Amino acid sequence: MSIKDQPVSCFQIDEEKAWNVLGHKYQPVIDSDNSYAWISFDPPGTFVPPHSHGENDEHIFVLEGEYELYLDGRWQTARAGDTVRWPKGSLHAYKILTDKPAKGIFWVSPAGQLSKLFAELHNVENPEEVVELSRKREIFFAKPGEAPGYK
């Protein structure tokens, strides 16, 4: 999908273009060799457990709501207008702890295999299958107890 297919100013979900990944909706906006970007629609109570990327840095620009962010054993809150960078190889995660959804523009650089992974994860309901498919695409989830300070 190119930027021409999705206006940058459109931050509403398009159900036909979005992937459902364990309760999150990911709508791609840029897919190139250098960068892959998506809008993440994250309902209250959802989370992405600690994981690392084998080949890319990850960034977030928070559009709405609050993200509780985990990076290498520490937690912090990001709100609308904040930007975040998780370096390649870092152990990171996020949670939505408020009663309101959060929305952010996420991107990785280089693009790596995330576009293919999200397509494979669409509507997969088994978390163990998500972990296995992710590993094959260079996304590595921590095992319980391997993430200091993660609760």
Rank of each mutant, 00 (worst) to 15 (best):
L22M: 14
T83I: 13
D82Y: 03
V130W: 05
G54D: 09
F11P: 01
R137C: 11
L69A: 03
D14F: 11
I60D: 08
K4I: 10
C10S: 15
F41P: 00
E125T: 15
P101K: 08
G73R: 07
V124K: 02
G145D: 05
K136V: 03
A18Q: 07
H24M: 15
S109K: 07
Q12S: 14
P110M: 11
L97I: 07
V84N: 07
R137S: 13
R85D: 08
I13Y: 01
L133V: 07
T77G: 02
F47R: 06
R74D: 06
W19S: 06
L121K: 00
P28F: 04
E146F: 06
Q27D: 12
E64M: 05
L121Q: 00
G45R: 07
T98G: 04
I96T: 03
P28A: 07
K17S: 09
H122M: 04
S109M: 06
A119Y: 04
E125K: 14
H24N: 13
T98Y: 04
E15I: 03
N20F: 04
E138T: 11
Y36I: 04
N126R: 11
F118K: 00
I13V: 14
P101M: 10
E120N: 09
S109W: 01
L63F: 12
I3D: 05
L117T: 00
W107P: 00
A142K: 04
S134P: 01
G54W: 03
R137G: 02
S109R: 04
G149K: 00
A111K: 09
A147F: 03
P101L: 09
F41V: 00
D57F: 06
E128S: 12
G81W: 09
Y150K: 02
R137F: 06
S32G: 08
F41A: 01
S115A: 15
L22K: 04
Y26L: 15
V29D: 00
V84F: 13
N126H: 07
N34F: 07
T46I: 12
Q113A: 14
K143I: 03
E129P: 01
L133H: 04
M1K: 09
F11V: 15
S2F: 06
H51N: 10
A147C: 05
A37N: 01
G104L: 08
L121Y: 01
L117I: 05
G73H: 08
E129T: 14
Y70Q: 02
Y67A: 05
N34R: 14
E68R: 14
L91H: 08
C10G: 10
R135E: 05
Q27K: 15
E66C: 11
E120W: 05
D5A: 13
P110R: 10
L133E: 05
L121S: 02
K17Q: 07
N123L: 08
K25T: 03
Y26V: 06
H59L: 07
L91S: 09
L114K: 01
Q27V: 13
E146C: 03
G104C: 14
G81C: 07
V130Q: 04
N126S: 07
D33L: 11
P101W: 07
D72A: 12
G149I: 01
F106L: 12
A93R: 04
I139Y: 01
L22H: 06
S32N: 10
